[in-house]
Design a protein around this nucleic acid. Structure first.
Length: 208
DNA sequence: CGGGAGATGGGCT
DNA sequence: GCCCATCTCCCGA
């Protein structure tokens, strides 16, 4: 439990910017989800940009379908998809509406901040680092499933907001290739906070 | 303690 | 048929 109530919610215009810039700008922001009147959430520490047209790794690369429809807009809404038969991945639609017609930022990892006890229960894990250090993990920790697909992030049960504290690490955002894709694997469209222990992947040299 | 195998299902081509 | 993230179990050092 906590007595947190969201403020400084990111406006829709925040997301009307090219997807790569949005992916970097979202680093350090809060992702919030309300569960039974309690706000859970954490600071975004790792993202990936998926450009619509010309990006073979993007679900929207071959045009609009029922599944990828949210990626075609409006910007600033959720795009949630089901993966590997058991997990979900959470994206935020973001693109320059004057230049692109689709695009989204995959949220790959959070630094836990709010309702850590609730996240531990939903994850069935006690280690802080294991709660939200991966796209499927953070959806489970926050209680996000397909029913939250295509929802505004300016109101409702999922919000993105300015953080009230700085993330761990030295504050530098570094880029690298995206995880788990085959085509477009050489594009440096993944961004994360250097030296932040909550970034996805193998255990870093930090004792948490 | 780290590493590898196997399992899990929907949306596309 | 191909593509994906994560868990658990079972090794071997």
């Amino acid at each position: 439990m906590n007595d947190y109530y969201p403020n400084n919610i990111l406006s829709q215009s925040f997301y009307n910017i090219d997807t790569l810039t949005a992916a970097k700008a979202l680093i350090g922001k809060l992702l919030l989800k309300k569960n039974n009147e309690v706000w859970s959430g954490g600071m975004i520490v790792e993202t990936e940009a998926y450009l619509g047209k010309g990006d073979p790794a993007c679900h929207a690369a071959r045009g609009k379908t029922p599944r990828n429809a949210p990626m075609f807009g409006p910007v600033g809404q959720s795009y949630v998809y089901f993966i590997y038969g058991m997990y979900y991945c959470f994206n935020i639609t973001a693109f320059d509406t004057n230049k692109q017609n689709a695009g989204a930022v995959l949220i790959r990892a959070l630094e836990p901040v709010l309702d850590i006890s609730g996240m531990k229960i939903r994850r069935n894990k006690q280690i802080l680092r294991e709660l939200t250090n991966g796209p499927g993990k953070l959806c489970q920790a926050l209680g996000i499933d397909k029913s939250f697909n295509g929802k505004s992030l300016q109101q409702g049960d999922i919000l993105a907001a300015e953080s009230f504290l700085p993330p761990s690490g030295d504050g530098f955002i570094v880029s690298d290739t995206r995880i788990g894709i085959k085509e477009g694997a050489d594009y440096p469209f993944r961004f994360y906070l250097r030296n932040n222990p909550y970034v996805s992947g193998k255990v870093r040299k930090t004792t948490l």
